[in-house]
Design a protein around this nucleic acid. Structure first.
Lengths: 138, 138
DNA sequence: ATATTAAATGCAAATAGGTTGCAATTGTGG
DNA sequence: CCACAATTGCAACCTATTTGCATTTAATAT
């Protein structure tokens, strides 16, 4: 487990530090998009400086270990890049559920075919917003 | 034209001011997602305070006149809410093209059916990212 | 094991994007 | 054209994030 995590660092050419291991552990234990402050809170015993967290997030994103998620919030949320999926987000309480099978490759091909200006699509963002059962009752 | 625009304001219960007309005119002449600073630049002759622009954007969004677009940038982008569509965005030069026919209502239904926790989906964000023909040559 | 060194971290300060309080101005119904 | 609430501008503030620089530390060579 910690083995897997330090392998992630090693294969990406990062030095293995307790801070980075801890940040990765937060990502893999909480299976939802999180932001710098959330990580900072989770690691408050470890007294990790928030600047370090921001810097780590940037380098993890560049390495493709994590990726941004559009949560329509005021700060940047990330999650492990692992396998491709998307989210439903409750606009009331923030609850998040994920789903696979977006089948946007087809759409991308169609769009590309009928576009005069674009020649490559390599990424997409897709999030659904709504209300969870609990919040819907209000 | 200016008539149409002031009607938008009137039907939404806004007072008709030159600032608001000017902001709406920027939206309708530039058919792409724009942010507060872009509007501020376009209206620099008119010397509109940027705070006013921020406030106007918020009230237009609340009224449903404009809506947010996820551009994966550091500021909030909006466009006229008009008809439903999405974008392809060049991650190199920022060029934007739009397309219709996302057919996410089907996907939403499927997702909702197989979700234990959600009972309503009323919004989605979908953007494609890639390279335009010009940038692809580099 | 130890020295070396580039990478990683912490701290303080700066920046960027956006918001708030309040006083001055202005559009609009009566 | 009067009254008044809505709108705007200005200054100050706030939150999220970045930068500069000095210090520490993991990894490598010895």
């Amino acid at each position: 487990m910690t083995r897997d995590i330090s392998d992630i660092l090693k294969t990406n050419g990062f030095k293995i530090t307790s801070t980075r291991l801890a940040i990765l552990k937060v990502f893999s234990s909480d299976c939802k998009p999180i932001n710098a402050e959330y990580i900072h809170d989770k690691l408050k015993k470890e007294k990790v400086n928030i600047v370090t967290i921001y810097r780590t997030l940037i380098s993890f994103e560049n390495a493709g270990i994590i990726k941004r998620v559009d949560m329509q919030k005021d700060s940047v949320y990330y999650e492990l890049a692992g396998h491709h999926h998307h989210h439903i987000i409750c606009t009331d309480c923030g609850m998040v559920e994920s789903f696979d099978g977006c089948d946007l490759d087809n759409l991308s091909k169609e769009v590309l075919k009928s576009s005069n200006n674009f020649s490559l699509i390599n990424k997409h963002s897709l999030e659904l917003f709504g209300l969870c059962k609990k919040c819907c009752k209000n």
